[in-house]
Simulated assay, not measured.
Amino acid sequence: MNVECDRRAYLGLDVVFASPRIRALLKQAEQVAATNAVVLITGESGSGKEVIARAIHHHSQRRSKSWVDINCTALPEHLVESELFGYERGAFSGAEASKAGLFEIAHEGTLFLDEIGDLDPRVQVKLLRILDGAPYYRLGGVKKVNVDVRLVTATNQDLKAAAGQGRFRLDLYHRLSQIRLSVPPLRERREDILPLAAHFIQTQRAGLGISRGAALALEGYEWPGNIRELRNVMIRAAVFAQGGEITVDDLPEEFQQDGFSASLVNLSMLGEAERDVIAQVLEKTGGHQQLAAKTLGISRRTLQRRIKSYGLCVERNALVRVGSHAG
């Protein structure tokens, strides 16, 4: 199945999309990049927030300088401050040598703080001062550090609500959201599902396709884990697929029902009753279910469910009865 899409690369990260919403969002990122405004990127986990952050750096005047990124949940709370702001030798047990923080490393470049909503409250205060232009000390330091850094942050939380609950500083929220960009979840831009799926497949097995039934199943799924979940599903399917294309049977169990529902929608678009279409194909194939499933573009498992659901009886490889709809 050939899928038309746009492809771009930001700092070595491939971006594949077909939806107008992502195209418009990347255009906004390019416009924002021309400024030094602090940017807050919001969206569900796995929706592609880092792509937008990288696009901002890529199009900015700082693109030849450092790109530094960190997930605020990736480090224990007691290490976040030392990683961001650095420390001097002897500042704490184990600090055997001085170390520059990520702000210093990103000097004249871009610092991306992912999952900013999980930042320790004490660090939030120090971050606010830096955003206001104040120099800071490394941990255990006696000499102030001045940095010139473009800050881009991202979160899957509602920071304004978190501020109302006392979990996030309201003044920091306002400072971080000078420009706010929102990344829509994958279920709200279904045009991107098949291009992304094809891209992930090709990273594992070049030339492997996607069957019509599998494509319908992928497009009909809600993708609570967004692009990250899609990548994992397609890599697994590509590894274990037996033929030249991925079928519904190669997808996880939760996709089987989605595949059957989406396939029925497609069958109904042919202008005939779903039951009659299935019955006609079974008759033409002499009741050969595997061949009928291939003709319909669905898996054999899906076809068998529909045979039972619609009261179709197949015996000795022949369609012998068309019963009433079983519901």
Rank of each mutant, 00 (worst) to 15 (best):
E96L: 03
L264R: 14
Y136K: 07
E115M: 03
T302D: 10
Q242A: 10
D14V: 03
S64C: 12
L84N: 10
L102R: 13
F255I: 08
R138C: 07
L172D: 14
Y221L: 05
G213W: 04
E83F: 11
D258L: 11
E219L: 04
Q290N: 07
T42P: 02
L159E: 07
R306E: 12
G164S: 07
S60K: 11
L303C: 09
E115D: 02
L159D: 13
T73G: 11
P184R: 10
A217N: 08
R129H: 06
R138Q: 12
D114W: 03
K160N: 05
K143I: 12
E88N: 09
V314R: 05
R62G: 14
R275M: 01
K65G: 14
L264A: 04
L176S: 02
G297N: 07
A238L: 06
G117K: 00
E315F: 03
K49Y: 14
E44A: 15
G133K: 01
L75A: 13
P20C: 06
A215F: 01
Q289Y: 01
V265M: 06
D192A: 03
L172G: 14
D249V: 00
N146L: 03
L267I: 09
R180D: 05
R54N: 08
A134W: 00
L79F: 08
L267F: 08
R306H: 11
E83G: 02
K160V: 04
L139Y: 00
V149Q: 13
Y310F: 13
R122P: 01
D14F: 02
E191S: 01
A106D: 14
Q124E: 04
G311F: 09
H288E: 12
T203P: 03
R236Q: 12
T42D: 10
L319S: 11
L119I: 08
R301Y: 00
V16P: 15
L127T: 02
E83L: 08
Q280H: 06
V152Q: 10
V281N: 03
H58W: 08
A215I: 01
P252D: 09
A100W: 01
T153S: 15
I246T: 01
P185W: 10
L291N: 05
T42E: 15
E83K: 02
A9V: 15
V3R: 13
T203K: 10
A53I: 15
G286P: 12
S263F: 00
L113S: 03
L216T: 08
A161W: 02
L131P: 08
A37W: 14
E30C: 15
F260L: 02
N146K: 04
I41W: 12
N317S: 15
T302K: 00
L176N: 07
R236D: 03
E229A: 09
L218G: 01
L270E: 13
R305Y: 06
S299R: 05
H325N: 13
S19G: 09
G48M: 11
A154G: 12
A34T: 15
A18R: 06
S19Q: 13
G327L: 04
L303F: 10
L264D: 03
N36H: 13
G213Y: 07
P76N: 09
L218A: 00
G287H: 04
C72H: 07
Q31P: 02
A37E: 13
T153V: 08
N156C: 05
V322Y: 04
N71P: 04
G141F: 06
N226L: 06
F103C: 11
N232R: 07
A134Y: 02
G90W: 12
